[in-house]
Amino acid sequence: MAAIRVNSEMAGSIWKLLVAVGDEVDEGADLLLLESMKMEIPVAAPAAGKVAEIRVEEGETVSEGQLLLVLAR
């Protein structure tokens, strides 16, 4: 089973988690909303898979490149 690591493209804070561990997601589905520069920025699944791990919590500050979650397929 391949793991797909989803990293943050930019610094910001986690505004809303939209999935839970175990959820099946399609490619392009929004996984969470990042808040940065007063905008809600959706983070989309780079490929279809199952949410294996969520490494962040709502409200947490993240840096560019930080691991947000892991998908398995």
Partner: peptide, 10 residues
């Protein structure tokens, strides 16, 4: 395009 990175210019 605000759907990508909020439209911020990188």
């Amino acid at each position: 395009q605000s759907l990508r990175l909020g439209g911020i210019i990188d």
